[in-house]
Computed example of a mutant assay.
Amino acid sequence: MTTLEDAIRLVNEAGTDEELFGSADPHRGYLRLAALLHPDRAEPDAKAAATDAFVMLTNRWRARGTVAFGRYRVGAVAHTGDLANLHTVGRGLFLKQPRRPANNDLMEREATALRRIAEVGDPRYLPYVPRLVDTFRHRDPRNGQERRVNVLGSVPHLLSVAEVIRIRPDGLDPRDAAWIWRRLLVALGLAHRAGVVHGAVLPEHILIETTDHGVVLVDWCYSVVDGLDHVPATVPAYADWYPPEIHNRQPPGPGTDIAMAARSMIALMGGYAPAALVAFADGCSLPSVRSRPDDAWALLAELDDLLERLYGARKFRPLNL
């Protein structure tokens, strides 16, 4: 390719970045095309076409490696979840798309649950769950597959309880786990009063902010609203963490989430969990959902009483991992 006409034709017809910039040395390919297309070097009768192609070229180069999802442009995958990939699209904003179109219904569940919580939940506690910024269907131009996409807002740079367990395999000091458990019950209390059961309160879905002691409960794709359905799927790696009603495809209740939260917190504390907190968790995990506590706010008060008996008045403890 040595002529301006060839360069304009390539920019207008190239369907992929590899076709446009080449695969061996894309930067060199871009510079070669930019030199050919620069408007200052074009003859007067070709200046308009060269300018249009030059602008298109530079925009393609700046967006190289990104994919358009509606009005959002995303690059590499920032996080891989159970069934979806998350891309950063701004500070504290994440675009979430299912890897398989068959999971579009789970993405719709998440949007429905977060919309309900935002509409009727207590505004003071909304930061304990992601914020639904946008939801739409996106058709992949490469294969025509359509996916439900959710754009979520949350605090950036969070750490999952699963990651903490990997960092501290022997367990976390119960005085540190205490604030995570307390805030997790706040997130559940917020959701349950809005008529939403999370359905998958697992270590991977409990995110914490270690400096300011924040907790965000994520991945509402398995949620049930108003008890009208069963939890639609489980995370295979945690198959034995689910209470019986989920495996039996029965409607879950607040006690479903409370039991899974208790299991996650005992796993977090590991060998450091005192007998009193283990017994408290056992009371949250009885086989029948009807026998378990079903009010996260009342349970939080009971937990506070127990923690005060064990460790005295609450005080801030920096969590250094």
Score class of each variant (00 low, 15 high):
150 N>D: 08
263 R>A: 06
239 A>F: 10
230 H>Y: 15
136 F>A: 11
259 A>C: 10
218 V>C: 03
132 L>P: 01
222 Y>H: 15
237 A>L: 12
185 L>D: 08
203 P>R: 03
193 R>F: 03
245 E>K: 01
217 L>I: 12
221 C>D: 11
240 D>K: 15
151 V>T: 07
254 P>W: 05
241 W>E: 10
138 H>D: 15
173 D>W: 05
161 V>W: 06
229 D>N: 09
159 L>F: 11
228 L>E: 12
252 P>K: 08
227 G>D: 00
165 I>D: 00
131 R>P: 03
221 C>H: 04
262 A>G: 02
168 R>H: 08
185 L>V: 08
261 A>N: 04
169 P>S: 10
136 F>E: 07
135 T>E: 11
251 P>A: 10
254 P>L: 05
210 T>W: 11
167 I>L: 14
263 R>V: 00
146 E>I: 15
231 V>Y: 00
263 R>C: 00
132 L>K: 12
161 V>H: 01
139 R>I: 02
192 H>W: 02
161 V>S: 04
173 D>E: 03
173 D>I: 07
234 T>L: 13
235 V>L: 12
171 G>T: 00
151 V>L: 08
165 I>G: 05
258 I>M: 11
184 L>I: 10
186 V>I: 14
136 F>V: 12
141 P>Q: 07
248 N>L: 14
